[in-house]
């Protein structure tokens, strides 16, 4: 099976002498569903950031989608990010844009025509049950609704990899179930690799998954 993420002796740090992840070696198969858990401040979000190039490896090797993340050029990083969908705990929606335009963002960046992107956005907003809110602005929606918009945006360009950082951390039960079902659907139907950083793995999940736990800078696979 192809590997989407390969880490070899990967060390991550924000400051010179403060290592957050230490010499981690692991790989994530294409089409798999992976959870990364750990206590607050354990470095799980930092690890996720290294997958989309927001932080560079301090030591070791990291490859994402076949792209070497060590000293990656801006153009290569942009290319990689155009094939990744990211969901954040704080949604990161552009508040001056409508819901429809926010979902369209990855398609605009990838250069899709307005016809294609319009159809795709309508479909996705239908999936997240926000089609009637398309013309509204993010701040007019509830937190759960905003996260569903962020989820639709992450799926818009059919990414090879979805990275989600505490996607249901602030959400009500209904919005959480919508998010999990969308992530499940992307994984089972589109064969998209999904990596989720979370404190709690949902019990209602119906997909096989791998579980990594971070403790004191070490990454261990939980059987």
């Amino acid at each position: 099976m192809d590997k989407v993420i390969i880490a070899q002796n990967l060390s991550l740090s924000y400051k010179e002498f403060e290592t957050i992840i230490s010499k981690a070696s692991f790989s994530i198969d294409a089409g798999s569903f992976v959870f990364i858990t750990g206590a607050s401040g354990s470095g799980k979000s930092t690890l996720l950031k290294s997958f989309y190039g927001a932080i560079e490896p301090k030591q070791g090797q990291l490859s994402v989608g076949g792209v070497n993340m060590n000293r990656i050029s801006t153009s290569k990083l942009n290319f990689l990010r155009r094939h990744i969908g990211i969901v954040f705990q704080d949604y990161k929606l552009i508040k001056e844009w409508t819901i429809e335009k926010n979902v369209m963002l990855p398609l605009i960046i990838s250069g899709y025509t307005s016809d294609v992107s319009g159809t795709q956005v309508q479909k996705l907003l239908g999936h997240v049950k926000l089609i009637h809110q398309a013309g509204k602005y993010p701040l007019e929606l509830s937190g759960g609704e905003q996260q569903r918009v962020a989820m639709a945006r992450a799926l818009a360009h059919n990414p090879i990899l979805i990275l989600a950082d505490e996607p249901t951390g602030n959400l009500d039960e209904y919005s959480s179930s919508v998010i999990w079902s969308l992530l499940e659907g992307a994984n089972t139907q589109l064969k998209t690799t999904v990596v989720v950083v979370t404190h709690h793995i949902p019990e209602e999940l119906n997909v096989p998954y791998k579980h990594y736990h971070i403790d004191a800078g070490n990454i261990n696979e939980i059987a």
Partner: peptide, 16 residues
């Protein structure tokens, strides 16, 4: 800056 950084997360080139 916020809008530009969000666009960067989805791979938008500098000019966009």
């Amino acid at each position: 800056a916020e809008r530009m950084s969000i666009m960067a997360l989805f791979g938008a080139p500098v000019w966009l």
